[in-house]
Design a protein around this nucleic acid. Structure first.
Lengths: 195, 195
DNA sequence: GGCATACTAGAGAGAGGTCTCTAATAAAAA
DNA sequence: TTTTTATTAGAGACCTCTCTCTAGTATGCC
């Protein structure tokens, strides 16, 4: 099968995410990645045809991992209690994955998707529509049972945890345990369950 | 008094904010700003000693303007009703100032404050402590009257509107009117006033 | 008018990043 | 062993950006 890889794709992406967490997208350069991994630039270009492909891969792998876990947390037929759990889980995930949380929190636009290849753009689109339908379905289901509006339920489950986590990520701090508590309380208040 | 300025400081900052809204901090280069204003690079460097000073000015002017208006909205002795107004006002401000909202939403770290001059860093520090004490005082006052915790009140007044606005900013869309409604309802629910 | 001043104007050096290209190398397959 | 192939290795052309430096120009004041 040819020579065994010293720098495999996953390790390079891990390093790229690390660079991103430290200095934002502008710190994720092919040259910086090569330095950080002590790899020659050729090895980087062997995996990623250009910088846009690297940035796309950082975004896509991170979001896909996050959503895959989120799906299992939400389960098949989410109710308000499950919605609160999901909100708290988002906070806990950010605490456990500090660097990837920075990626998520920066949003796709930080990775210059306008420069991505057609294939990467397509993957991004499918991820987006899949996520949107998942969230819409979940929000509707929870909102019906909690007797509130769907946009309120959606906020409580997804925007609320990200908003709580955001100041800590921006400051480069870790996420305190109290953030999970706060999200649990607020989500409970919005979703109307006993606090 | 010397020659009249063709490119004055405020106009350059407006242009820089425009560039930021379109392409993030990496798009705010001295060269790009010069191109965008059809000014020679010398004129840019006449106003801003280096790129870090430009980025600092973009951040500082934007936040100082926002906070100055916020102070008047909050008034002297904020109560829960005033807190809800402030939350909705944040959303309306973002709608009315799309480009500056992008700056605010990106956070200071997007402007590489580690490279700022000592003077700019100092201004940033004072702004921060002033804002923090303002928010803490407001949150305490509102929380006492609403009989909730201070961190919950702070969330409802400041993090909540930013979180609601965030997805729209990230997508490059304008802020819909419905966002103001949503924030009003959620803030009312958290602050415990009649919805 | 003449002078001082504040600004415009833009060339150019130097640094760093992107990407291409060729050669070397290690491991699996024949 | 020989061949094939995936990968490492890194030199180098090209581009863009930052920042410096010198010269030119318009305006207010004496």
């Amino acid at each position: 099968m040819g020579r065994r890889a010293v720098h495999d794709r996953e390790a390079l992406l891990d390093a790229a995410i690390e660079l991103f967490a430290r200095g934002g997208a502008q710190a994720v350069t092919m040259a910086a990645l090569a330095r950080h991994c002590a790899a020659p630039s050729g090895s980087i270009y062997h995996r990623f045809p250009d910088r846009a492909a690297l940035l796309a891969a950082v975004w896509l792998r991170t979001t896909e991992r996050f959503v895959a876990e989120l799906v299992t947390v939400l389960g098949d037929t989410p109710d308000p209690a499950r919605g609160i759990e999901a909100a708290v889980w988002c906070v806990d995930w950010c605490r456990a994955h500090a660097a990837e949380a920075q990626v998520l929190h920066a949003g796709a636009t930080a990775f210059a998707p306008e420069g991505w290849s057609a294939a990467d753009r397509h993957n991004w689109d499918s991820d987006n529509t899949a996520l949107r339908t998942l969230l819409a379905r979940t929000a509707r289901s929870v909102a019906r049972q909690a007797e509130i509006r769907a946009d309120e339920a959606a906020f409580a489950m997804f925007d609320l945890p990200l908003a709580t986590v955001r100041p800590h990520l921006a400051a480069g701090r870790g996420i305190p345990e109290s953030a999970s508590d706060l999200v649990g309380r607020l989500a409970a208040r919005i979703l109307g369950s006993p606090a």
